[in-house]
Write a protein that binds this DNA or RNA. Sequence first.
DNA 1: TTTAGACTTTCTAACTAAAAAAGTCAAATG
DNA 2: CATTTGACTTTTTTAGTTAGAAAGTCTAAA
Lengths: 202, 202
Amino acid sequence: MFNIESTDNFSLILDSAKKRFCRYGLKKTTMTEIAGDIGLSKASLYYYFSTKEELFKEVVKQEHKTFLNEIEGLLSSVVPAEELFHIYLERRLIYFRDFAHLSSLSLESINSLKPVYARLFENLRKEEIRLVSKILEKGIAAQDFENLDIAYYSQLFIAIFQGLRHNVLIKKDTINITEIEYSLLQRQYESALKMFVKGIKK
Amino acid sequence: MFNIESTDNFSLILDSAKKRFCRYGLKKTTMTEIAGDIGLSKASLYYYFSTKEELFKEVVKQEHKTFLNEIEGLLSSVVPAEELFHIYLERRLIYFRDFAHLSSLSLESINSLKPVYARLFENLRKEEIRLVSKILEKGIAAQDFENLDIAYYSQLFIAIFQGLRHNVLIKKDTINITEIEYSLLQRQYESALKMFVKGIKK
DNA sequence: TTTAGACTTTCTAACTAAAAAAGTCAAATG
DNA sequence: CATTTGACTTTTTTAGTTAGAAAGTCTAAA
């Protein structure tokens, strides 16, 4: 979950921020704490990041990018589209569990989330749609899938699985997901993917 | 959406409460207002309903029952299971739009909703799962569907479509759903149903 | 049995002040 | 020059506080 130790302050700040944001969320993490973690003063943080918001966005973006890159790297491989979907969803669930606090913002959003974060998460969603589009393209090119409306089906795909994730959070008041909830979600993901693929297969 | 005018006070209260809860939600509706609508004193309301919470629950339950009964009535008809799913989802969307304010509680729930309402909505969800189970049963009995795990698949069914609905609300800060969002949801419902049925068909 | 006026209790919205956290900057360090 | 910081200002959050509103109660009357 937390990778290599970095050396430069920029990365050290991101690392510490990531840990704290994941554990305590945006609101319950202070700039002073992050600075303290790596033996810097708060003022120094502002040398690297203009605002707390900026820092948070950077953490979220980077984590998401790492996640997407992992899948994207397989796009040009021989792995078939269906298997790519499987891998994508598998990793997506792990990402969901580990970074629930980051995306828990999307829960706060229901009330009164600053538009800037709404835009951030909307962008991440769009990037995932783009990735799914590419997988669909690959499947169509390989004659695995029908020649369908890629834009629509990738949007649908993301909507279904995001929806399933939300069902887990919606009832709860804590962010932590139990093993039972997680394994049910896993099973639902498998079933839903099976249906989705069957629905678009040639 | 709002049916026959009732005569007894019990029903008059429910009618007025329904209208106000749908339009303004639970918090923005006062017992005095409801009483005023039908020319009763607030104290009289408490003769029929012990608490505001009780009244609200009664309204939600009744509306949901009306919705479910409509579909349940078709269970013993010649309408095939697949068509029942179609009808169910069609009505479910209308119900969703018209009573968004009622179920908007499920949004408030994310923060700090009293467990009693959480239980209420959980019960409604369970009743819908039960209905879907019956449709599945019918399909299996008619040899339309595979002999699958009914409990699991009805839960999955509800999860998928509830999830899709949530995707619409999650971004918004208002409860009102635009025509564009609604028609996309309609289309997603159709696609998802198609896949679901294809996935379990014999 | 049903209703309502007058009542009490509970909740909420709007303030406040104090504390905490965000954010700034000139000077210092190396 | 790039980086860091202590001391600073500004903004936000929190914890009271209070007044008004709304929930909820009760007794007497129709």
